[in-house]
Design a protein around this nucleic acid. Structure first.
Lengths: 251, 251
DNA sequence: TCTACAAAATGACGTTACGTCATTTTCAAG
DNA sequence: CTTGAAAATGACGTAACGTCATTTTGTAGA
């Protein structure tokens, strides 16, 4: 059994923090001495490190508690949420950095008149007129959109959707090789295998593609969303080629 | 003179915030009615917007107060300090983003065992980069070092890495089906395809890599994501089966 | 001019993850 | 059994407000 000070020496976590976690019922000592001194065991050390890790990723102690306690907590939801937050924060900080640099330049130009510099910058910020600003705003929005697109697409919570995402991504990468290219056809074959596992039955790949187009929600569940139209067509065509050569093989 | 509610409508700043700023002596109303209601003028509006601007750049209310009050405040110092902070924060968030993506992938691989996913990631984090590089240089030659960049990474959100992770995860899921199961063999075939796409003719490299993979300690030294031993052996065996049936087909 | 109801003011507590006292107990060595 | 070090407990502070609850004030209509 480890004394609270030993835990501190081992992990670097302060005594106050350990008491705090105890208070929150996040990490309780394995036992206490008669006099009430906290004693920690192997298990607590491990848990403490998990807590540190999750904290580093930016989760609040409350969320961490839920994650570690509740048996069927939706980790993937939490992680996605956090990912979106982190990406947006980076965007925000990037904008802030730009503003700071502009402010610095502005001050250099205006000399001592800081407030005048600010005033001019503020005009730039939410000014309603200049084309530049409209352009900036547009670009910013586009970036935002791209980010929001990219995040759900590039994270999958299970190995199956992860592979779908990977396959689709690679198909996109290899589009320029043409429909009959080996790599393309291999990807399509793998897709066909997967869809036959998942959607056993008559509806074929083309139907599946149709479905995807008609039902964004379904495809999002599968991690397929969003797919652009070009890729969809390419997939369709490649699949046709695939089926034809499969037919030939049979003959 | 503007009523507090008018200020809110004009600027979007809440009544509570205005009261708060008054309390802090940051922004005092130009006058008060007999009954104590706050009245704001043109000057206060302008100052409020400056405050909003500086707040957006990330300064604290305390600093803002100093900036606007003290005549010869060193603005450039503050701005530089803030700039440094913002840049550091971005780097920090970037690291966090990587960790989150790794965690997501790790969870996809490990299935529902989130804590195991965390444990493995923590192992990866602890490893020192310089040690890893040194180890790599010892094992691989110059040319092979370049190939190392192409092996799938847990952190990678490139579609290739994602598919690898997906494939490994699915192999793990289907282990209980046995070596010759269709799904297992299809996965292996896809793996083999990917292998030959990227590492055709680099058998020496692949053999070395596989040996390292087979040893958890060696893997850790290189900073590779630890994969369960039994899964690796299963993969090896299933591959043997795959090669055999491929041979038969030829005959 | 009185009334009534909206809006404002005041004060206090809550939030996050602990740091930092101040005070009291407990532990372990001599 | 003493004693000094370490632990425990409790309380306050932090940043920038949000959110009550309660009391006053402003003003429009009768």
């Amino acid at each position: 059994m480890l004394h609270i000070h030993d835990v501190r020496k081992l992990t670097g976590v302060t005594v106050r923090t350990l008491r705090h976690y105890d208070h929150l019922d996040l990490l309780m000592p394995a036992a206490k001495t008669e006099g009430g001194h906290r004693l920690y065991g192997e298990y607590e050390l491990k848990k403490l490190q998990q807590i540190q890790f999750l904290k580093q990723i930016g989760f609040s102690l409350g969320e961490i508690k839920s994650m570690l306690q509740e048996e069927n907590w939706e980790w993937t939801d939490s992680i996605k949420k956090q990912l979106i937050y982190v990406v947006q924060e980076q965007q925000h900080l990037h904008q802030t950095e730009i503003l700071l640099r502009e402010l610095m330049n502005s001050i250099a130009l205006e000399g001592q008149d800081h407030l005048e510099a600010i005033r001019k910058l503020m005009l730039l910020m939410d000014g309603e007129k200049t084309m530049q600003d409209r352009y900036k705003e547009k670009v910013f929005n586009q970036q935002q959109m791209q980010l929001l697109d990219r995040i759900p697409r590039m994270v999958g919570h299970d190995s199956d959707s992860l592979e779908w995402i990977g396959l689709i991504g690679q198909l996109k990468e290899h589009m320029d090789r043409g429909l009959s290219d080996d790599r393309v056809q291999q990807i399509i074959r793998r897709m066909d295998e997967k869809r036959s596992e998942q959607f056993e039955g008559e509806d074929d790949f083309l139907n599946k593609l149709w479905e995807i187009r008609l039902s964004p929600e379904e495809s999002e569940k599968m991690g397929l969303y969003p797919i652009d139209q070009d890729l969809l067509h390419f997939m369709e065509d490649a699949y046709t080629v695939f089926m034809q050569s499969k037919q030939k093989e049979k003959d």
